[in-house]
Amino acid sequence: MQKWKEKAVKLGLLGASSTSILIVLLIFFYLIKEALPFALDPGLSSLSGSLWAPTSMLKESFGILPLLTGSLLVTAMATIIAIPVGVIAAIYISEIARPAEREVLKPFIELLAALPSVVIGFFGLVVFVPLVKSVFGLSTGLTALTGALLLALMAIPTIISISEDAISSVPSSYKQASLALGASKLETIFKITVPAALSGIVASITLGIGRVIGETMAVLMVTGNAAVVTMNPLTSVRTMTATIAAEMGEVAFGSHHYRALFWVALILLGITFALNILAQKALSKYKLG
């Protein structure tokens, strides 16, 4: 009887933990199922164009290049902004700040992490859009840079809180050994503590980028949504996520446009998947001990 009970519990736990695998597989399956017919008609080559005009009356075109570059541009800029700010803030909070400062900083950072992206989007519309417009003298503040700033704002709390955990869990015996050799506090932080916490810091950055690349609402609100191929941060762009969010609701079920959007989703999933694998590799490489 006891044995049977144990088996049941084990099975239950196994089921619960396999659910996530099952769901990921189902998502993959469903995306592919809906996207696949597009490969036959009108063919995959039509995805490679540089014009995204899925509802054009003259000629539908499904070139995802502008969406890809839009996502890339916004994500790359957000990452470049968020990494130094996030990591430096984490170092400050865990190694330099006095306990009283830490008590104030940490809850605010956690609050920032918990803000819904729509709310951050509103903040962007009211603050960042006019700011970018007036600083660079543009006709509109709805640009890739504005989106990147907002996304950085969303990635920073993730980077801070996970990096901070990693840095403060570095054994104090390392720090003591370094100090006892005559290293200053800063030398100890940058040559011992941060390298020892590197795997956690890399993980925090990956999660931060993950949030950035998948983020939809905020970028939809502030990037202007012009599907053009550009690497100029001061022009309007349209990201893959924003495209799906904006167009999925109005597309005719089963149409070419509908299937093209599934391709966009599939590519997005592929990118996040690749990022995750890269991060895992980076993590195992930095783990020396």
Binding site: S173, Y174, Q176, A177, S178, A180, L181, G182, A196, L288
Partner: peptide
């Protein structure tokens, strides 16, 4: 601390 070195109770090599 350069002149006065220290060895700790638990061996604490750096993860290097």
């Amino acid at each position: 601390r350069k002149r006065v070195g220290m060895v700790f109770q638990k061996p604490n090599p750096f993860p290097k």
